[in-house]
Design a protein around this nucleic acid. Structure first.
Lengths: 347, 347
DNA sequence: GAATCATGAGAAAGCGTTTTCTCAGAGCGT
DNA sequence: ACGCTCTGAGAAAACGCTTTCTCATGATTC
């Protein structure tokens, strides 16, 4: 088909800009120009190049492109645990929003291994134009040191002292207080907080919120019980909850609440007649539990897309190191069927 | 600190191999050699280079590396919908397994837009060393045409005619038959299959399986009802299910079953006393529903990690185009509390 | 009609690595 | 002491693209 003598190159090698140039009888440079529409090119030549490109099914190699342009059109996200629906939702929101602007996302799951976080983040940053760090478990000191090296950086559920990295956070303290208030308003007097992972910043926020709640409601008994962040830990806490004598339970999150719900059901404890249970996050499953779960809704999809917007802002204003927005979301209490007035006390 | 005249380059630019070379008083090539341990380097010089590297905090630029080596140490995954727990689990399994071998994963969510799939897959492939295509919705013809261009490719929940692309699939036909059999063994005689998305290959497999089931059990009444693949569609089917008069319901998957469970509960229909319900997939939430859901478990985490293993095999044997494994998993029926013998018929 | 200018295309220099090629010098045998 | 091999380091090419620089051509102006 016209490809004359020594058609050896065709074998194996991917079609590159050089092939298109040769076929169209122009230079590499010109091909690049028409592909990117950067400079004025004679319409006739441009057409010839384009024809050659489609005929050869030419697609620019993004790696070469990235090297020349100094950008990859990719951002990285590092999460502590991809099994957690909250992080899944953030990832999804981020991915969809970024895709809309032609960016892709590279994932890194630290599997809750704190020491890996900064390494993963660094590697991700080198491959990408920016990094979003999701609920990092690392110490404040380490974060503070790492942040500048990651620069186009967005923090989720964590803040730095440095004001030039944007952060998105949720006011867990406020949310947990509102849930507690909701239980008290229903008439509960003995509450339990089933806490989450020790080194989780969001757990600390909840504890601070509950301290404040205690101060404002000295008449309420509020016990703390150690737990985890998943189904199983909720389920395992069943006995402890029952023997606590409390009628209102604030679970660390929806997963824990669901595990607890299941455990209580097995033990024949009725929810909400005997015990009221609240969750946190309002994951999609929360409204389909039996009974549907009262919880504090965090606008999780919005979080992902806002994270992208903050990232984009930084990428665009490359260099101008302005001080960045610190966004804080207020959870909204979602009252469903897992909470009700407690039965009248026998005592 | 010794960095003499005209210390201008330090500003702005990232530290590269050239900086290390200069500091150590050697050539770029030598630095590369000691960083990669490829050729023999004088121990003294090697030490000097390493010292310079740590002092400058040198980290090789992966983009330059990728260009030179022709590989990115990254694989892409394209999924129809990141909100689906099944795909989330596959992504997670894949990501963790790949990370163990030093690979990262780039995600592409087609948002169920069939026409985007092949474009996303192509773009992903160009940026990565391989692509895993997860439950592609595209036509067989399109897939057949696309597959060779994607080459290091792993298919999940879909097969090609081309025997040189490995595929992982689940025997949905078998699984749904076993669930139906389970219901019949319990004594149910009137069943409903609440079907999933039309163009889903796994839905078609279920239908084929049920056809076979029908042939083997002419005495059983089996209705088909259209549905979707998520909570809401299950919830919306509640009325239709109730009025069907069936006592055993085969939901398309666990999500649909959970939506249905919730709807039935609202209507005061007891599960399993009045109606038995089964799901499919055994997502983590399935055993925490009320009542816990009888379902067919697919080893979803294994799927992700096996996908990586198949991908790795292809990457390693680069070129040798051998015929690849077609793995098929058999779901395992997981009997829980959402199924039981039907109440004695009034008629 | 000659000098000036705009237009547009090719040549070549980057981008940051790896790797082949080349060659200087050391070590060895005879 | 001469030539041989061998080790190891620098020079340079390659990877695939973008972009600046340069220069030829044809159009414009006085």
């Amino acid at each position: 088909m016209g490809r004359g003598h020594m058609a050896r190159r065709n074998t194996n090698r991917r079609v590159g800009i050089a092939d298109v140039a040769e076929k169209a009888g122009v230079s590499h440079a010109t091909v690049s120009r028409v592909m990117n529409g950067n400079a004025a090119v004679d319409p006739g030549i441009a057409a010839r190049v384009r024809a050659a490109a489609v005929e050869l099914k030419y697609q620019p190699n993004p790696v070469g492109r990235s090297l020349a342009l100094g950008k990859t059109d990719t951002i990285g996200i590092v999460v502590p645990d991809l099994a957690n629906p909250t992080f899944q939702a953030i990832l999804r929101g981020l991915s969809i929003a970024a895709a809309q602007d032609g960016y892709r996302v590279l994932i890194a799951d630290s599997s809750e291994v704190t020491s890996e976080e900064s390494i993963l983040a660094g590697e991700a940053r080198r491959r990408c134009d920016g990094v979003v760090l999701c609920a990092p478990r690392m110490s404040d000191a380490e974060l503070e040191e790492l942040a500048p090296t990651l620069h186009p950086l967005v923090l989720i559920n964590r803040t730095t002292i440095a004001t030039n990295t944007p952060s998105l956070s949720v006011d867990y303290g406020q949310g947990i207080q509102e849930l507690a208030q909701h239980l008290v308003t229903l008439g509960h007097r003995r509450l339990v907080f089933l806490s989450g992972p020790e080194h989780s910043a969001s757990n600390r926020q909840r504890l601070v919120g509950l301290d404040q709640f205690r101060a404002e409601h000295p008449e309420i008994e509020l016990q703390m019980l150690h737990g985890g962040s998943n189904f199983d830990s909720g389920h395992e806490s069943t006995e402890a909850i029952i023997s606590s004598g409390a009628t209102g339970i604030l679970a660390f999150n929806d997963l824990v609440a669901m595990g607890l719900l299941s455990g209580l059901h097995e033990r024949g404890v009725r929810v909400p007649e005997d015990i009221s249970v609240t969750g946190f996050d309002d994951i999609p499953f929360a409204k389909y539990t039996t009974p549907p779960l009262t919880t504090a809704a965090v606008p999780i999809n919005e979080l992902g897309s806002l994270a992208w917007r903050r990232m984009r802002e930084q990428i665009q204003q490359a260099g101008e190191a302005a001080t960045q927005a610190q966004d804080e979301f207020s959870p909204r209490v979602e009252i469903r069927k897992s909470t009700a007035a407690p039965a009248l006390k026998p005592a």
